[in-house]
């Protein structure tokens, strides 16, 4: 019975090709099923995406503030562990942001938007005493402030886009 079926298919010039295509379709079906059942992608609806973006801005800004402001008693600056947090937390934040998308381009744009938003928030907080004239400042003041922002910008631009693209690529291949 089975041998006759095999023979029929072998006789059919389209047979083997069709079988391969069927297998491919099955594999693709499993792949799609996996993507649909993947938990992080469940949270990729637009309200979740906005929430992730807001949380991302909050986390990255907090890390940059804590690293740069040495006067805060709970600062993470001036220590090795703090340096590690400064380097890797934005990376993982961007990784989570990138998991939202299947397209690397969208992930890239989203992570850079979140990164730039956190830099603007950082600038707003850092320059608040200066804008409100809460203290007397000398010539070097703005140089120090721009140094903090430059440091954060270098961190942001080197870690965040990479992590977002890597994460978005894991949504397709596992």
């Amino acid at each position: 019975m089975s041998s006759s079926l095999d023979r029929d298919r072998d006789l059919d010039p389209q047979g083997p090709t069709n079988k391969k295509l069927d297998d491919m379709g099955d594999i693709w079906g499993i792949q799609e099923e996996q993507i649909e059942s993947m938990d992080p992608l469940k949270f990729s609806s637009w309200p979740w995406t906005i929430l992730k973006g807001v949380l991302g801005v909050i986390i990255v800004t907090t890390i940059y503030l804590l690293y740069n402001l040495a006067e805060i008693p709970w600062t993470i600056g001036e220590s090795f562990a703090g340096m590690m947090i400064f380097a890797f937390v934005p990376f993982f934040v961007s990784f989570v942001l990138g998991m939202t998308f299947e397209s690397g381009k969208k992930a890239l744009v989203f992570s850079i938007i979140v990164g730039m938003a956190s830099l603007f928030l950082l600038y707003a907080i850092l320059s608040h005493p200066y804008r409100m004239n809460l203290f007397d400042y000398g010539d070097g003041y703005s140089a120090y402030m721009w140094w903090y922002i430059l440091l954060s910008f270098i961190n942001m631009i080197s870690f965040m886009p990479v992590a977002a693209v890597v994460a978005s690529s894991t949504n397709v291949y596992e």
Binding site: I58, I59, L69, W74
Partner: peptide, 22 residues
Amino acid sequence: KEWIFYAFILVGIICAILLPMT
């Protein structure tokens, strides 16, 4: 990836408290 996602939410909540404090 799932664990990283939950850690992200947790760290986000902690930072939402830390940011205004800082």
